[in-house]
Amino acid sequence: MSAQSVENEVMIQTTDVEKWFGSLHVLRGISVTIKKGEVVVIFGPSGSGKSTFIRTLNRLEEHHRGEIVVDGTVLDNDVRAIETVRSEIGMVFQQFNLFPHKTVIDNVALAPKLVRKLSKDEAAKLAMSMLELVKIPEQAYKYPGQLSGGQQQRVAIARALAMQPKIMMFDEPTSALDPEMIAEVLDVMIDLARSGMTMIVVTHEMGFAREVADRLMMFDEGLIVEEGTPDEMFKNPQHDRTKEFLSRVL
């Protein structure tokens, strides 16, 4: 297999995805194709459906119309398919959501043990190497509550990576952090992007987007109003909503 064909392998394909919360039409037809190794940054005003959209990709939210295919698996009500997709997509949340009753290393080792059926030792070893990757192996035996927000978010990244996912999704990973802790999390994410990981990142950190994103998408009212490379989007936005939004966050 040539490098070219690897580059073109489609990881996620969505076609006209629609979703309602009651009578609220939150996704109004989203079609995206994300290829292996691509880093996609999604931004837009709150309530634009960007978080809801990425949550439909691992079925934390159900979509009502359209089709979602993740690495060849069609997402529907089949529980097996859902679990397969979830184990291939790592997800990092705004609120970290670490398990407070487990130590840092147990947080990271838990899913490899339960889902990938690794032995206790293998899982611990894997977990430790993931903690080294996010540069906090020394916190392994503490509890999440004893760590700073930035450290917790890095553990959350290690926890997702320990499942050796093909895709990593980040849902506003720095929004709950104090300003001085944002950089340590973004640094880890930048390293990850440069290592060739396929990433979908909902964020307003435009510095991050400029540095590593292949593609930017502007969401508004349940639609993608504009997409393009960072250069195109920052220097020459076409849509009025994009211009207005970027002028506020840049």
């Binding site: 679990e83 291939e88 997509i89 949340f93 959501n97 398990f99 009753h101 889902v115 926890r159």
Partner: peptide, 27 residues
């Protein structure tokens, strides 16, 4: 136990019984 805890466990691909027994019930 917050909804985020359940979602984090589900997002890791855990089965429903694991989510309950390992993540939710101990907390």
């Amino acid at each position: 136990v917050s909804k985020g805890q359940i979602e984090a466990a589900q997002a890791l691909g855990m089965r429903g019984s694991h989510v309950t027994m390992v993540v939710v019930l101990p907390q």
